[in-house]
């Protein structure tokens, strides 16, 4: 039907035409999925990854996160809520202790500005609930907890039990779980041989690989208006970014905002800054660090000192008075998305 000579002479043109047709009909190179685990939105964006393999990874990640929530959820039924009630717990899973040890390491690393032992204080302010009602506690009650100096260093861990003598100590890993989950997801991708995926767990993002010949690009939400974007930046492979903000969980009373970010030193919600964003370069625990290190930043009294203490190059804080204080090296990486002069940007 089709002349042989014609096929011979024009086969290359036919091939080009075929490629063109196939290419224009091809599906997107990206595979996206959203899920909800214990109130946290998980977003996956795979690049050039087999859909079946992607689904397998998502399933494994969700299973692991469900297990972690069953171990560490601070107010729903979990191992940790049992411990918080009785101040002793028999454990069977070694991974449980591994995570606690990691939390302890970061508590010490941040000089207790990330303190996973102040669960009782967070509960006192009314944040251990699905719907936050809010409660301003008496100074006396706050001081009782602070005076006991709650710390994970006060845990006594034996082969199969954890105990503590400090009855004011209650564990809440809320400041670390999202970041930890990112690192766990990254391990799962590694095991399954998935190279290019962007993972966003409740606003904390970890970049693995990159799509095609560009970097993953992310936007940062405006802390004063969740419908607006504050900035845009590129994440190199292995980078992670995290933000702590007073807009996430809070209650309003007498015209004041009370955030769930309770300063472990004075026992009161953060007032000075409205958000703190940290960018972590590719390294071990990048996910955890993107979550945990935003706490010492938001509670910081001296940003220069915090930079040296944490050995952290890229971070910024914002205030409700529309001020942005950003490290000089980070300023070169971000592209602001607000109208000129809307925020007063200063470097340190």
């Amino acid at each position: 039907m089709f002349p042989k000579k014609l096929l011979k002479n024009y086969s290359s043109i036919l091939v080009i035409l075929l490629i063109f047709l196939v290419n224009s009909c091809a599906k997107s190179d990206f595979y996206e999925h959203k899920a909800l685990v214990y109130g946290t939105v998980l977003e996956f964006k795979f690049y050039k990854t087999d859909a079946e393999l992607s689904d397998k990874a998502i399933k494994q990640v969700i299973n692991r996160l469900n297990t972690i929530n069953k171990q560490f959820h601070p107010w729903k039924e979990s191992e940790i809520s049992k411990f918080n009630k009785n101040h002793q717990l028999k454990y069977t899973d070694d991974s449980f202790i591994k995570i606690l040890s990691k939390a302890k390491y970061y508590e010490n690393f941040t000089h207790s500005l990330f303190n996973p032992s102040i669960g009782k204080l967070i509960n006192l302010w009314g944040f251990h609930a699905d719907t936050i009602i809010g409660n301003i506690p008496s100074e006396n009650k706050v001081n009782i907890i602070l005076n006991s100096k709650p710390s994970l260093n006060q845990l006594l861990i034996t082969k199969n039990t954890i105990t503590t003598k400090n009855k004011e100590l209650e564990i809440d890993l809320g400041g670390m779980i999202k970041g930890l989950s990112l690192d766990i997801a990254n391990e799962i991708y590694e095991e399954l041989g998935i190279d290019n995926v962007l993972t966003n767990f409740g606003g904390n993002i970890l970049a693995r690989g990159k799509p095609n010949n560009r970097y993953w690009e992310i936007a940062i939400q405006n802390p004063l208006d969740n419908k607006l974007l504050l900035a845009k930046l590129k994440l190199e492979p292995g980078m992670a970014i995290g933000t702590s903000g007073d807009y996430e969980k809070y209650f309003l009373k007498n015209g004041s905002r009370f955030s769930h970010l309770i300063n472990p030193i004075n026992g009161y919600p953060i007032k000075k800054y409205s958000s703190a964003t940290v960018l972590i370069t590719p390294q071990e625990d990048a996910g955890i660090k993107s979550d945990v290190l935003s706490k010492p930043v938001i509670f910081s009294n001296d940003l220069n000192k915090t930079r040296d203490d944490l050995n952290l190059d890229y971070f910024f804080v914002t205030t409700r008075e529309k001020k942005i204080l950003i490290s000089e090296s980070f300023l070169n990486k971000v592209e602001w998305l607000f109208e000129k002069d809307e925020f007063d940007v200063q470097t340190f």
Binding site: I218, N226, G242
Partner: peptide, 11 residues
């Protein structure tokens, strides 16, 4: 369609 300019949003 916000996805045109970035892959994900940090908050």
């Amino acid at each position: 369609d916000n996805n045109i300019t970035h892959d994900s949003t940090a908050y």
